[in-house]
Amino acid sequence: MTVKAVVLTGFGINCDNETHRAFCRAGADASRVHLNDLIEHLELLDQAHILAIPGGFSFGDHIASGKVLANRLRHKLGGPLERFVAGGKLVIGICNGFQVMVKMGLLPLFDGAFTQEVTLAWNNTCRFENRWVHLGTAPDTACVWLKDIEQLPLPVRHGEGKFIARDGAVLQRLLDNHQVALRYIRPDGTAAAGEFPYNPNGAADDIAGICDPSGRIFGLMPHPEGFQDRENHPEWTRLPLQAEGAGLQVFRNAVEFARKEL
């Protein structure tokens, strides 16, 4: 079966090229589709198995990061997206895409409802920063995108990535549902425990990514599409690394899952 992935573009999205490349390398039939074309041709979404909302600065991050694009998706593509999700299909939002997802309520998707329960606020440093972080997969996570991945290094490149839940109950519910997917850790594998720069933004419980209860809808601040080749890693000249970057496995997992399950 051909797994079709739609990678969203337009309005300041800017990681669409490498996200598209990652899905192609993972074996998907991937295409970059402008948001307006997707709205005009809903069949493109209906025919796809995976939707990716890549990183970038949609609408300049004006008002708040991801907010204006989230608003547009909700108003212009809300119904089709609900259908897409209800069909058990896969969605990934990376960085700005994650911000879009939480602000339109596509995550955490408690009880299937598009309600905003969490947010990504300004980093504690109040700065946009580009740095590599160490990440650990939550051992009990439902996230299908992280299958067989225990740890991986990835770049973060954001100003608003501090994960905050509405309250303690929401955070507990995320934990109980196995929706916490990815955490910032220290290089030795222990918890970052909020310490900068291991936790680069001050995220609650070191959370870097969450998924919906089914594990098929995944959002994260770090950029797995930014580590497709060994040479992307900042220490590749001094470390024994595989030729393939560790980030690519995230996309392989999704394509494999879609091929088997959809």
């Binding site: 700065r127 590599w132 930014g226 220490e235 001094r238």
Partner: peptide
């Protein structure tokens, strides 16, 4: 320099900061 995105487009091979602590 850290406040600039160094690696969007995914083509990065050598970045501005190198070594054990980057």
């Amino acid at each position: 320099v850290r406040m600039y995105d160094h690696e969007v487009l995914g083509q990065s091979v050598l970045k501005q900061f190198q070594g054990i602590r980057h």
